[in-house]
């Protein structure tokens, strides 16, 4: 058996809230196998986003160890962590979070600005990623000229342009209508099956969860 893509051991996370300590995650053990497509469900405030942010190296645990794609990220410095994110990870947000002053293709190109890639090659890779999400004909549109579903697909193109091994999505269909949500889910499924991306996705949507190969429930900071 290969090493898991994600391996959390005894991870706790608490927030300071005006002197009070809010314990969100407590001594959590969590593994995700390479190549799987997992859905994480659970009530609001149960700590799903917190867990996802820890996996994505956006936040640090209060205790415990986190290994993702073979790297201990809880001990990495700020700079090394940023570099690791740029190379290993694609993050998909509920609110798409495209940069409004950039066109679709430029938004997709953004992560490549950090890599030693020539400008023409950057553009070529960004266009390829847009083709993967089926939006090559919208490359010069600005986010405000796109529908919500299209925006999210551009955001997915941005997440995969660096060819990361792991995709992390926090309620990617939360703001979308059914049809657009299905498009996005189909796309994630394809990325998992064809491009072998490991995907972990937080969702409230049972239909979305059905697409995943594994469904987990988080309640009050522990996995059910």
């Amino acid at each position: 058996m290969t090493a898991p893509m994600i391996n959390l051991r005894q991870v706790s996370k608490s927030y300071d809230r005006g002197g009070e300590t809010l314990k969100v995650l407590q001594a959590l053990d969590f593994e995700v196998a390479s190549g799987s497509f997992e859905a994480l469900m659970g009530p609001s405030g149960s700590g799903k986003s917190t867990l996802l942010n820890l996996i994505a190296g956006l936040d640090r645990p209060t205790a415990g160890t986190i290994e993702v794609a073979g790297t201990r990220i809880d001990t990495l410095g700020e700079g090394a962590l940023a570099k690791w994110r740029a190379n290993t990870l694609g993050f998909i947000f509920q609110a798409y979070n495209l940069i409004p002053v950039l066109t679709a293709v430029e938004n997709v190109e953004l992560p490549l600005l950090l890599a030693p890639v020539a400008s023409r090659e950057r553009r070529r890779r960004a266009e390829t990623a847009l083709r993967v999400v089926g939006l090559e004909d919208r490359s010069l549109h600005y986010p405000r000229q796109l529908s919500g579903g299209q925006e999210q697909r551009v955001a997915i193109a941005r997440a995969i342009v660096n060819d990361p091994t792991l995709l992390v999505a926090d309620e990617p269909t939360g703001d979308l209508d059914r049809a657009s949500a299905d498009d996005v889910l189909r796309l994630l499924e394809t990325l998992n099956k064809e491009l072998k991306k490991t995907i972990i996705m937080v969702t409230h949507d049972p239909v979305a969860a059905e697409r995943a190969t594994v469904v987990r429930r988080l309640d009050k900071g522990s996995l059910a």
């Binding site: 956006l58 700020e78 940023a82 570099k83 994110r85 740029a86 979070n97 940069i99 992560p111 950090l114």
Partner: peptide, 16 residues
Amino acid sequence: TNEYGVLRAIGFFPRH
């Protein structure tokens, strides 16, 4: 601010 968060999540450094 939100956008700076997005850029950092993508891998941009604080100095960027």
